[in-house]
Computed example of a mutant assay.
Amino acid sequence: MTATALVIGGTRFIGRHTVSELLDNGYDVTVFNRGNHENPFADHPDVAHVEGDRTEEGELRLAGERVDPDIVIDCVAYYPRDVRVATDIFADVDAYVYISSGASYGAKRVPKREDETRLRDCTTEQATDDSDATYGPRKAEGDRAIFAAADEGVNAMAVRPPVVYGPHDYTERFDYWIDRVDNHEEIVVPGDGTNLWHLVYVEDVASALRIVAEEGEAGEAYNVGDGHAPILGEWVDRIADACDTEVETVFAGPRELGAADLELTDFPLYIEYPHLLETAKIRDLGWEPTPLEETVAATVKAHRDSDRTGRENGPDREAEERVLSVLETF
């Protein structure tokens, strides 16, 4: 008998790749969302669609009754209440997997480990706030909801990715750097290029979600990240290789960036303190990351095939050229 999966979300980025991953591994899949975005699986015979709002408990409960899934992958649980409601509704499924985040960690540690590194606190006010500043605390509280559900006998687990990149990435953070490398001979990289922000390829997140659903243990959280974590300067070099081009990287510190009223953190994928996740725990389940040569090449191809530029995620070219002109005088 074919196993059934319910994907809450499922048409844009991580969810889209998760649906494909489940299909490739023999599942019948139902996508549950509001239908606000184009459904790439609309004509697929093994993908059903149930329209509804996951924040409306009755609609999510009805979807669960209609589908009766074996596993549930929750791609759009952004508030602790979302997780608590879902783990109640799906208390009897074989596995409920919540997409958490590396942002749930609250301690500055390198690397961050699931069973050692402290999670962020989350106040009552933060739990219902929708700003970027409370994203990490809300995800951490969702993790705690997973732990509580597992204590009540629910086979609930969490997967914690850092920044995700790859085809169909609507955040366009990685696209910013592809656009720069692909269109200019000289680009500005903030700082000295050694800042470290662990990333993860979207298809590897999708495979992690499936593997955790099949092999994970109730009440556990699993970090997922690329097998190698390049510094920002290396990312630029790898993108240039995938673009089959050459680019001169010019590093700029706070003084040089100040000439264009820029700060280091105005650039996407810049982080002041290293963010690295230990991934041994999920590897023990049989998960393996895709080599970076493949992930970057696929991401560059998808970028070129799309209309994404990522330019709104960082300094515009005019500001960048002002910085370059200042550096040329030194």
Rank of each mutant, 00 (worst) to 15 (best):
A150G: 15
T124Y: 06
T30G: 09
D70A: 08
F267S: 14
E217V: 07
V181I: 03
V7Y: 10
G258P: 04
G58T: 09
G58H: 07
Y273S: 12
N155D: 15
S207D: 06
G258D: 07
R238G: 10
R173N: 12
A242P: 01
V97Q: 01
H37N: 11
E288S: 14
Y98K: 09
I89T: 09
D143I: 08
D237H: 08
W177E: 11
T279I: 05
R84V: 05
R81L: 13
Y176R: 11
E186G: 03
M1K: 05
G310K: 00
E320Q: 09
D46V: 14
P40M: 11
T194G: 06
G136M: 01
P254H: 08
M157Y: 02
G52N: 04
E21H: 13
P40L: 10
A127I: 07
G106M: 00
E125W: 03
P289Y: 02
A103M: 03
P111L: 00
M1N: 06
Y105F: 12
V188R: 07
G233F: 00
V159Y: 02
T124C: 13
H168Y: 14
L262F: 03
L257T: 11
I14Y: 01
G193I: 07
R255H: 05
P289E: 08
F267L: 08
Y201T: 09
D179A: 06
I239R: 05
E217S: 15
E125F: 05
I8C: 09
L196M: 05
D316L: 04
V85L: 05
F251T: 11
S306H: 03
